[in-house]
Design a protein around this nucleic acid. Structure first.
Length: 483
DNA sequence: TGAAATGTTGGGGCG
DNA sequence: ACGCCCCAACATTTC
């Protein structure tokens, strides 16, 4: 019986520029491709894979299995405990090499440690980077400390070499056609039914490696040339929308890095756009490293004193926020875009997050959980780090007095009201001067717009002035008490 | 990658 | 022509 190489897919659901996969395919042995749905080991124990992510995962795995079958391979799917399933394969299928990509979430780290502890003396184990551009061990200050502030972190990163692109994927020379007790993807029931809320998703997303490459090319040829400005405009399609593709590893950050750089040079794009875009990739790196270094990031405030912050848990307000019924068009538009499409524009994420945490004083964890369940790009590190940034409890966080004004933000970044009109049809007929503050419309305007505030669209659940004042005094009091 | 309050400046109306 | 006031525009400070 010949030896086999086992390749374990994780959040690297792509063939190209996948260092670990290339290495596995170059072992000159038959390769068994395996994906394990281990709901207890992907994220931490409070973060089972969210509903929107399940939808994406289904389609991404389907797409990957098609690509593998094109070269005569087969993607084996198994659900359950990672160690147990690996054990079964290693035991029964004559595996002498196990290769995979490195993960940075707490339970991924734990799983890797267990794999090494169990098999490092018995078979060849190889682990490769790829999910991030820089390894956490690689980026630290001169004194050895890990960075807690973004700007010096990113400066240090930019001094490091960027991983080179691997060649185009080459299938293993020895084929493995056999199917090893694979589950049927459909039986995992990753897709919603009763009700099927994913109809909107299909019109926005094409999960899988080809979809990722298509999204990148589309971005390069449209929004990228004025990214520095356009990235803040939710009414325009000006951002890359690669977040979910990146999360599932359908495209590598290294590939994005090289492609945006090459495109900038080739087409004389103003470098300010390149710098801004790379900076966003940098935030992803920063979050990934933070979570790796502080595994509790997704559950506990990074700044410990925030453990005692007097949040106001209020189910009614939380529900209004989740459903997009706060009475603030820009907030409601964002929350409805999220519900319908599984995604929200980043500028609007900041606005709705600030509203929840500051105006409503609801704990950031409640918002983080909602995003976790509803975002197709839900990423433990990005989600947690960003919520903590808004709440003020994170590393390098926004100061407590930085409170977004949802009216001003709306006027500034959705100047024609196109974004709020798209997602909040109730206010579609309001004129531009009041579309971001419907409560200022006079009787005539309201009747022209067929709008009855408090009837078919809510009045603000808290006035901006009261919300702001309440937040400022709560945070101020907390600051003076905790020092 | 904030917004509001407060301070400063300077042009123009007006007695 | 002058002083005074108002206020917009911008700058700085504060939360």
């Amino acid at each position: 019986m010949t030896n086999n190489t086992l390749f374990l897919f994780r959040n690297d659901l792509r063939l190209n520029d996948n260092t670990a996969l290339s290495a596995a395919c170059q072992t000159n042995q038959p390769v068994i491709f395996l994906y394990i749905l281990d709901e207890k080991a992907t994220n931490d124990r409070y973060h089972d894979i969210g509903s929107a992510s399940r939808w994406w995962l289904h389609h991404s795995l389907f797409s990957l299995s098609i690509e593998i079958e094109k070269f005569g391979g087969y993607l084996n799917l198994r659900k359950g405990n990672t160690l147990k399933i690996l054990n079964e394969f290693i035991d029964k299928e004559n595996i002498n090499k196990l290769y995979f990509s490195r993960g940075y979430q707490p339970l991924e780290v734990k799983t890797e440690n267990e794999i090494y502890a169990r098999w490092h003396k018995k078979i060849e184990l190889k682990r490769y980077a790829g999910y991030s551009l820089f390894e956490p061990e690689q980026i630290h200050a001169a004194n050895g400390q890990t960075y807690k502030v973004y700007t010096p972190f990113w400066k240090a990163c930019l001094k490091q070499p960027i991983p080179a692109l691997k060649n185009k994927f080459k299938p293993p020379t020895k084929k493995t056609r056999k199917k090893f007790r694979s589950d049927n993807l459909k039986d995992w029931k990753l897709l919603p039914s009763k009700p099927d809320w994913s109809k909107g998703f299909n019109q926005y997303w094409c999960p899988g490696e080809q979809g990722a490459i298509h999204a990148l090319n589309k971005f390069l040829n449209s929004g990228f040339f004025e990214y520095d400005y356009g990235r803040n405009r939710p009414d325009l399609v000006a951002t890359s929308r690669l977040s979910a593709h990146l999360h599932f590893g359908e495209i590598s950050p290294a590939r994005i890095w090289h492609e945006v750089k090459n495109f900038t040079n080739k087409h004389n794009i103003d470098h300010v756009n390149l710098t801004s875009y790379l900076r966003e990739l940098g935030w992803r790196e920063f979050s990934t490293h933070l979570l790796f270094n502080w595994p509790e990031l997704a559950n506990k405030p990074f700044k410990k004193e925030y453990k005692t912050f007097p949040w106001r848990r209020n189910k009614k307000n939380l529900t209004a926020w989740q459903k997009g019924l706060t009475g603030y068009p820009i907030v409601d538009a964002g929350m409805r875009q999220l519900w319908y499409s599984g995604w929200m524009h980043n500028r609007v994420r900041m606005i709705v997050a600030s509203f929840l945490v500051k105006h409503l004083l609801i704990p950031w964890q409640d918002g983080e959980k909602w995003f976790w369940d509803t975002l197709v790009d839900a990423d433990l590190a990005n989600n947690a780090a960003s919520w903590q940034w808004v709440a003020g409890s994170g590393a390098d966080a926004a100061p407590y007095f930085r409170i977004f004004n949802p009216i001003l933000q709306g006027k500034k970044f959705d100047p024609h009201g196109n974004y709020v009109r798209e997602w909040v049809p109730e206010i579609r007929k309001l004129s531009n001067d009041v579309v971001h503050e419907p409560w200022l419309a006079d009787k005539q305007q309201l009747s022209n717009a067929e709008l009855a505030l408090g009837v078919n669209y809510p009045k603000p659940i808290v006035t901006h002035e009261n919300g702001r004042t309440r937040a400022l005094s709560a945070f101020k009091k907390f600051k003076s008490g905790s020092n």
